[in-house]
Computed example of a mutant assay.
Amino acid sequence: MKTADNVALCVRNFSKHYGEGCAYCMESDAVLDRNICPECGTIHACSDISFDLHKGEILGIVGESGSGKSTLMKMLYFDQEASSGEYHLADFLDGEADVLKLSSRQKRQIRNEILGMVYQNPVYGLKMDFSAISNIAEKLIASGSRNVGDMTATGDHFLGKVNIPLNRKFDPPVNFSGGMQQRVQIAKALSNYPPILLLDEVTTGLDLSVQADVLELIKEIQRELGISMVVVSHDLAIIRMLCDRTMVMLNGSVIEAGITDQILEDPQHAYTQQLVYSIL
């Protein structure tokens, strides 16, 4: 299998389960209690998920807490290992390799050079006691940079792009507000110009005005750099603002997918209808 010319990321039959599984729940037609096997108690956090992320596209993933959307993101960034499936990246070995089968060293290379990640909690994406510029340097060093002057210039560029005052670049993120911490995370994730950016609930817990600033920043970066993005949120208003296409997840499965406007204007699944009507 190889990615199509216009596809940046391709996932087929991605699954993640916690537990051994049994003959009953490993069958495709098994009836689970939400996403838990009634026979053996195995939790099927993600079940048989397939999708493409097109080049230059923002794909939204929406669903309630426990729907599996954050687990999916962790598998895409190798924070968790998938139980089964295939995963191809156009910018790694021309999209021909199933990156789930690669060595740990090759997966680190992909994290450092092809993927950028922005977590809901900045603690997972930043060293909170290191300076903002040092956090960016860490990402650049991991991707092969060695020239201090070049790394400083890159750090200054991206901190400026996310509106962090350069007179605070030596401050540690622990001294920043939540919105500023998220912007430093975004700067760090972008610093080596990755073709794909993953954003997991990046505005949760932020004040509304700060949310608006972060969302506008994401849109501006996508327009300027043409990066492909996957945006996870439980908030359809955020998905409406950012995303070209949307997948709706429930109990570990994708229950509906399509162009965002179509999903919002004519939802087909009862759960999606409930989501859409709740924001009207």
Rank of each mutant, 00 (worst) to 15 (best):
L198M: 11
S134H: 11
R146G: 11
V184I: 14
E86F: 02
L250V: 11
F176C: 04
Q262E: 15
I255P: 11
I49R: 00
L166M: 06
Q106C: 10
E138D: 15
E265K: 15
E57L: 12
L217S: 09
G205R: 07
A153Q: 08
A142W: 08
S83F: 00
S83W: 01
I239M: 09
N147Q: 14
F92K: 07
F78N: 05
C37A: 08
S84E: 12
V254H: 01
D150W: 03
F170P: 01
R34T: 04
L215T: 07
L32T: 09
I114S: 13
S104W: 03
A82K: 05
S145Q: 13
D213T: 11
L264V: 13
A137R: 15
M75S: 14
I227Y: 07
V276K: 08
E224G: 10
L102E: 06
P267E: 03
R105E: 15
P194L: 02
L225C: 04
V231M: 10
S191G: 12
K101S: 14
I196D: 10
E96P: 05
D266R: 15
R183I: 12
D98I: 01
L242M: 11
T272C: 13
S131I: 04
V62L: 08
L242D: 01
Y18W: 12
D94V: 01
I239S: 04
V230E: 02
T152S: 12
R12V: 00
I36F: 01
R105F: 07
S103R: 08
D171S: 14
L264N: 04
L53Y: 00
S28D: 14
G160K: 13
R146N: 09
A8P: 08
Q222C: 11
V210H: 04
P38M: 10
T204P: 07
S228I: 05
V99I: 13
I227R: 09
E81F: 00
G95N: 12
Y277R: 14
S134T: 12
R183M: 11
S134E: 15
I259W: 05
I36Y: 01
I49H: 00
D244I: 01
M247T: 07
H88V: 00
M151K: 04
F158E: 02
S65A: 11
L140H: 09
K69A: 10
L206K: 06
L159W: 01
R245C: 12
Y277C: 06
G155C: 09
K55R: 13
P195G: 05
E224A: 14
G125P: 15
D33V: 11
A237S: 13
V7H: 00
L199W: 02
S134N: 15
